[in-house]
Amino acid sequence: MADKIKVATASLCGCFGCHMSILDIDEKLFDLVELVEFDRSPINDIKTIGKCDIGIIEGGVANSENVEVLREFREHCDILIALGACAVNGGIPAMRNQNTLQECLETAYIHGIGVDQPCIPNDPEIPLLLDKVHPIHEIVKVDHFLPGCPPSGATIWTFLTELIENKPISFPYEQIHYD
């Protein structure tokens, strides 16, 4: 392959665990950088996205900024990947969907343990929260899903090599789990 494959990654409403897992492919990381070049990603701290072959999204969509970033990724990436439980189905953050936003915010900022200045933050700079946390496929078209909390480094490696080599995507049994 002549040109390196351009990859961008982002963490929306996630815990960066999936990004840690990308790094967790260990020594294969060296093979990976042979094949790919990172565009916007927390890994290199590049903040704007250019045209990419692959976009990898960790985390679900919880606020207006998540929506914006996700849409930008969809626009700039040929292939968009939902990485990890939160991107795939909302994950742990989606457990807040059982409550109204008001209840969530009041619990956190008003009645929470250790709150000394009860007040729901409303600086216009802070992105507004959506009433529910959504998996990313409910906002944009997603081409591939990699479940797991987080998906293992091995799963990510299997996937990326298959994708890059244009092979059908399939995994050994142990590499797919939802937790």
Binding site: V88, N89, P135, H177, Y178
Partner: peptide, 19 residues
């Protein structure tokens, strides 16, 4: 449920969640 989903190679819930 999980195990049968693994068996059928389900990688995502695909549909819109009812929550």
């Amino acid at each position: 449920l999980q195990a049968v989903a693994y068996y059928t190679n389900m990688l995502s819930p695909h549909y819109t969640h009812f929550f």
